[in-house]
Every structure is written in C-alpha cells, then in structure tokens.
C-alpha cells in the first residue's frame, strides 16, 4: 500500500535546483518491466508483452518502446503509439514541468526544446522524438548556467499561480540560446505562444532582460 509520502517539504531555491538534477538522474535508462496498459499484467521483456497482446488482446494496438535523448541522457520508455511527449514525460518519467493545459498546441505550457527549437510536447508524438535531443525545464533548472534566468523569474514574480511558468521559462531559455541580448520586443515575440491567465506578461521580459545581462557578465 502506498503511504502518504510527503514530497513538498523542501522547496527552497537550493532544494528545488537539486531536485531538478535528481529527477534527471532518476530517469531510467533501461526498461526493467513491461506493463500491459490494458490489463495491468507485468512482463519481464517486450517479447513476452507482445505475445501476451497477441493472445489476450488480439486486434488491440500494442504498446511500443521509444529511445529518447532527454536532458542529455538516453532513456528507453514503454509507451502507447499515440502518446504525446507531454504524457510520456509525466506518466513514464516523472517529469511534471511540461504542463497539460490546452492539450492542442495553443498555450505553450508544455514547451520543451527539441534540437534547439521550442516545441509543444502536447502535440508531438513520443515516437516522433526518437533521434532528437530534448531539453525540459528540469534540465534547464539543473544546469548552473541558467540559474540567473531562474533567479530572475523568481525575483520578478514572473508567476502567480505558476502553472504556465515552466513553459514560459523554456521559451525564454530558447530565446536566449538564439539571441543572448534580446530587446523587450523580441522577448514579447518569443513568448507570444505562451498564455498566462494570471496576467504576468510584463514580468517575463523584465526577468529575461535581467538574466541576459547577468549571463553575459558571467554572474
């Protein structure tokens, strides 16, 4: 039986940045069990799961595996073919930074960086991600080079309820990758695919511009 474990007790700056790194370290690189999504049966290898499907669930679309390059780590996941990257991150890899909001590529809350470009994890299938380098907000948070950006977001309250914020932060990082010295207008343009219900819009440019300066100075 699962206990009432508390996983919200340490949410200070240092603890959160450390937790990001821990989450990345905890991403399993190999599959150790294969769970049937239809009946919950557990198998020791993929061939056994496929046999089980043929026998017990004939005609059903069988699960598949995908090899992902995520935050610098290679990991193999068991998924269903129609799963989006957002679902895989949340349901298989324990990464909750790509948030589910609009579910159809409008709000930007699930933004990740793929091969240097911001993409929406709710509209890209996991199986399409094989062979691409993906960076999530956890990967950005765990990278000391981006501490000025995270710090600036927190200093300037670039969040209220905070649900959409990781998506904004990923878009901001992607902007700074492409343009380390953006103007305010360029910040607004880069974040135009992210929707915030809480009205934090002016805060983001403020945070990005301050972070850009600090990063340029090597602070």
């Amino acid at each position: 039986m699962i206990s009432g474990d508390n996983d919200n007790t340490t949410l200070t700056r240092e603890a959160v940045l450390l937790r990001s790194a821990e989450l990345i370290d905890a991403i399993p690189t190999a599959l150790t069990e294969y769970r049937c999504p239809l009946c919950g049966g557990i198998f020791s290898d993929f061939a056994a799961l496929e046999s089980h499907y043929a026998e017990e669930h004939p005609g059903a679309a069988s699960p598949t595996t995908a090899l992902l390059s995520l935050n610098g780590r290679l990991c193999k996941v068991l998924i269903e073919p129609h799963w989006t990257l957002q679902r895989t991150l949340q349901f298989r890899l324990g990464l909750t930074g790509a948030k589910h909001m609009c579910d159809r590529g409008v709000c930007g809350s699930c933004t990740v960086i793929m091969d240097g470009r911001p993409v929406l994890a709710c509209t890209i299938l996991t199986v399409e991600c094989e062979g691409h380098n993906i960076q999530t907000v956890e990967g950005i948070a765990a990278d000391p080079r981006w501490k000025p950006l995270v710090d600036a977001y927190c200093k300037w309250d670039a969040m209220q309820c905070g649900y959409c914020t990781p998506g904004f932060l990923v878009s901001a990082k992607s902007l700074l990758d492409r343009n380390p010295n953006p103007t305010e207008e360029e910040c607004r343009e880069a974040l135009s695919g992210n929707i915030c219900i809480c009205g934090t819009y002016p805060r983001h440019s403020q945070a990005i511009l301050e972070a850009a300066l600090k990063i340029a100075r090597g602070e």
Binding site: I2, L11, V16, R19, F91, T96, H100, T136, I140, P166
Partner: peptide
C-alpha cells in the same frame, strides 16, 4: 519589492506538482 515567493522556485522549474500532475503506481 523583489522578495521571491517561498514556492517560486518550485513553480518556475516545474517541480511543483499540481493535482493532475500526480501519477502513482498501480
């Protein structure tokens, strides 16, 4: 001004788990 929220780091980095983020075994 500019005193960070106590939970801002968790929010900005996606560590913050909202209700629908919870995925538990079984």
């Amino acid at each position: 001004p500019n005193l960070p929220g106590k939970l801002s780091y968790a929010l900005a980095t996606g560590i913050a788990k909202f209700g629908i983020d919870y995925v538990v075994p079984g």
